[in-house]
Design a protein around this nucleic acid. Structure first.
Length: 417
DNA sequence: TCTGGGGTCCTAGGACCC
DNA sequence: TCTGGGGTCCTAGGACCC
């Protein structure tokens, strides 16, 4: 048995925790560069402000004069999330953080689950100052669904229990299949097309049909909805597989020196993140793109992915990043977004000591010369211009983790030795 | 003028090998 | 009418989540 506890309008609630004047008012928290709405209190939702809505379009709309727009502060949210976690670990045997504002709880063997949930909800509100909702169910997917049910009932206790099969069946007849965790817009549309509208319709489908339409992922979701648990509680956090630093520019960039500065900054941020997590990267993806929303701008997107020496040395990384970016840079475009993604991560302690970062500029320069030589020698294999690039509509996609990156990294090391 | 920034997993099909 | 068959690796693409 699982419970899912989830902060209500989490980022907004974090702001409210420190600013009581924001209570009972429509508050919206904006993304980076104040680009679009990423969290809304229910007062703001009632005014018709949508998730992801661009700020510059919503701002002037009639009826929104009293909305309080706030820039985001991710350090604060991370801190509030930790507080929430700490409160919960004192009250449940296992807590699995799922996202910044959601945690799965182990509720096995509890005979007073709703009361325990109420205690936790109260404790999180009192100590961490975050209002939450709790969903309870025999599987993670059902707990998640119950949480959504609790959220919808604003006058309710904030707790919803879907353990009882009859109650569940009743709820399934009311709820759209697209409201299930794991059934996104594309899957929902596919299902609608063959007449599946509600969750009740979905769980009645034969396995092979589900599998054919939605792959094993959809089948797992279907089983979970039938009450068969397929997703255990993760007792230890899994190791991270990639790490990204990407930004949209406040103002388009159309000269290489500006872009080079941007990429240098990204590379620095990336090394900070690596160090903080005690990781090194053996491969990297670098991308840039024009403003995909612009009707008048000529569009260009490109990416390159390649192996790097598994080192978190800032100089080396900056050298690699800017060199790769120069590869895909084309004059004559107005760039709106760029970024780097580090792949093939491993714990730093697993590597021999001489891989470790060095702040010695001479050593770094030597490494960069070595990289240059390798790029010349292995050209296509080591530093490959992206073959696909990106869908102009969706922007850049992340490269898959590929063993070949590691192979190329080995090549690099052999040549150095 | 201004449209986020992170993450994960699955699969079809081609290249290549024996 | 038939054109070998089975296996692995990798890429590109699709989909989902917060």
């Amino acid at each position: 048995m699982f419970a899912l506890i989830d902060g209500n309008s989490f980022y907004c609630s974090c702001k409210r925790a420190f600013d009581p004047k924001l209570r009972n008012k429509p508050v919206v928290v904006l993304s980076n560069n104040d680009g679009c709405a990423i969290a809304r209190t229910h007062e703001a939702k009632d005014l018709g402000i949508k998730m992801g809505e661009p700020y510059h379009l919503a701002r002037g709309r009639p009826g929104l004069e009293h909305v309080i727009w706030k820039s985001s502060n991710y350090a604060l949210y991370g801190d509030m999330s930790r507080r929430m976690y700490e409160v919960l670990t004192t009250m449940a045997p296992h807590v699995e953080p799922y996202s910044i504002d959601e945690m799965f709880l182990d509720f096995r063997g509890l005979n007073d689950a709703p009361r325990r949930a109420a205690d936790m909800l109260a404790a999180v509100l009192k100590i961490a100052k975050i209002p939450t909702c709790v969903g309870i169910g025999p599987t993670k997917t059902i707990a998640k669904l119950a949480n959504a049910v609790a959220k919808k009932d604003r006058a309710g206790s904030g707790i919803s229990d879907l353990r009882d099969p009859d109650q569940r069946a009743c709820a399934y007849r009311e709820l759209a299949v697209g409201s299930v965790w794991g059934i996104g817009p594309a899957s929902a549309q596919k299902l609608n097309k063959i007449g599946i509208q509600t969750i009740a319709d979905f769980v009645a489908l034969p396995d092979d049909e589900v599998r054919k339409m939605l792959s094993v992922v959809g089948l797992r979701t279907c089983w979970e909805l039938r009450g068969i648990s397929c997703m255990p509680l993760a007792l230890a956090p899994s190791t991270r597989k990639s790490l990204a630093v990407t930004r949209s520019f406040g103002k388009s960039i159309d000269t290489w020196p500006e872009m080079e500065r941007a990429f240098s900054a990204y590379a620095m941020r990336a090394t900070e993140k690596l160090r903080r997590h005690g990781l090194v990267a053996a491969a990297m993806q670098v991308f840039l793109q024009t403003n995909r929303f612009s009707k008048s701008d000529r569009q260009y997107v490109n990416q390159t992915s390649f192996a790097i020496e598994p080192s978190s040395d800032s100089f080396t990384l900056i050298g690699n990043v800017t060199r790769a970016a120069r590869h895909i840079w084309r004059d004559g475009y107005r760039y709106a977004k760029a970024g780097i993604i580090l792949l093939d991560l491993s714990a730093a302690h697993e590597l021999p000591p001489n891989f470790f970062p060095s702040r010695d500029p001479q050593k770094s320069a030597a490494l960069m010369r070595a990289m240059d030589a390798l790029n010349q020698r292995y050209g296509r294999n080591t530093l490959r211009p992206g073959t696909v690039a990106a869908h102009p509509r969706w922007g850049m996609r992340r490269a898959n983790l590929s063993p070949s990156y590691t192979t190329r990294a080995d090549q690099l090391l052999q040549v150095r030795a």
